[in-house]
């Protein structure tokens, strides 16, 4: 589904990713762990289409050159990024934002757009599953949301949009234990033979709830070690020093 070959990325003359390669097949869950500043968010930003990076190397999504696609086209094709720091957008009602987003993606997929009633029914259902307080949906997007509420809002959007590839950038950071389980439920519900996940995290705990197929350690701009779930436990115990 996603093939990254020898990706290099530079911003403001600072080289961040240096020969990064990764292969994700349909249905797989990959976890990436790595110290602060190692380039995890840089990777997710580049996958999402954020501008401002100088890049070389190759990224293929379902065989297509990702660099050829605009940010929104990538979203239309099923790439979703749960942001490490979700943005606040004053003046924009959360419900309206979610509906506009869902319909933009449905339209691009050639599906019928949902009217207000159909949408509200769907969003109600999903909010209930995720124990997301519905009142928040009538507030301005992420404005005044607590850190955890913003993260949950990302997962709500993920479950609404049902993407093929979901990238979760530290979605678990700042979540209480109950919320962590809910987020994991959100992922597990969407998890099937076709949908894949790239989960960026600092903590092994999330991986207790979402069993990854692979765990990778990212350091100095590339993957220095890959393994199964046991690698996360090893990291938790020993830290990153051993990998240098």
């Amino acid at each position: 589904m996603l093939k990254i070959n020898n990706l290099n990325a530079t911003i403001d003359n600072k080289s961040i990713l240096k020969g990064f390669s990764l292969n994700i097949n349909p249905g797989e869950v990959h976890a990436i762990m790595g110290p602060n500043g190692s380039g995890k968010s840089t990777l997710s930003n580049i996958l999402s289409g954020k501008k401002g990076y100088e890049t070389s190397g190759e990224i293929l999504f379902e065989g297509k050159d990702l660099f050829e696609l605009e940010t929104e086209e990538r979203a239309h094709k099923g790439i979703f990024l749960a942001f490490q720091y979700p943005l606040e957008i004053p003046g924009v009602n959360t419900n309206i934002f979610l509906k506009t987003s869902l319909n933009a993606i449905r339209k691009a997929r050639g599906e019928k757009e949902l009217d207000a009633i159909e949408f509200l029914k769907l969003v109600k259902e999903k909010s209930k599953d995720l124990k997301f307080d519905e009142d928040k949906l009538n507030r301005q997007l992420n404005v005044g949301f607590s850190g955890g509420e913003k993260k949950k809002n990302e997962i709500l959007q993920m479950s609404l949009l049902a993407p093929k590839l979901s990238i979760l950038d530290e979605t678990d950071s700042g979540l209480d234990i109950d919320a962590l389980k809910i987020v994991a439920d959100g992922v597990n519900t969407l998890r099937d033979k076709k949908n894949s996940f790239l989960i960026i995290t600092h903590y092994q705990r999330l991986l207790d709830y979402i069993k990854p197929d692979f765990v990778h350690v990212l350091m100095n701009g590339k993957i220095v070690k890959s393994g199964g779930p046991e690698l996360a436990i090893e990291l938790e115990n020993k830290g990153y020093e051993n990998f240098n």
């Binding site: 501008k51 942001f83 506009t100």
Partner: peptide, 20 residues
């Protein structure tokens, strides 16, 4: 970028923000 990641074109995103 956040709006575009959610499938909106930059014009749609500006429209949404400005109308808000």
């Amino acid at each position: 970028h956040y709006c575009q990641q959610r499938g909106l074109s930059s014009e749609e995103a500006v429209g949404l923000i400005v109308n808000g």
